[in-house]
Amino acid sequence: MSTVICKVEDLTKNSGSCALLTQNGQQQQIAIYYLPNTEQKVFGLGNWDPIGQANVMSRGMVGSIDDELVVASPLYKQHFSLVTGKCLEQDASLPVYELAIEDQNIVLKS
């Protein structure tokens, strides 16, 4: 099943944006990263920073460390893998959401 979240043009390349999703009556914030120069192009992680304790992960900078695509928390700069959600420096991780581009839409696969 796929849920349409937004359009590709709503995103900013090589940066993050945030979407609000209601699943099973629960509101969830998803950080969406749009990296047009990578194979996968879109990545989804939880927006809640478990270390900084705020909904800010979508506003972090993306990049790579040793070939692993990462986002840095905008609060205290720990790096989280865009693929696994794992924090590289501390014992923490973010939920991962599988996203795809279909017809210029960003869709959530589940």
């Binding site: 705020a54 909904n55 900078m61 905008p74 609060l75």
Partner: peptide
């Protein structure tokens, strides 16, 4: 500018200073 926005750190990115709660 669209080529530069990805280079801006936390605060420059939104031209304001992020506080602890976002």
């Amino acid at each position: 500018e669209s080529d530069l926005v990805q280079l801006q750190d936390t605060n420059d990115n939104f031209m304001a200073n992020m506080q602890k709660d976002g």
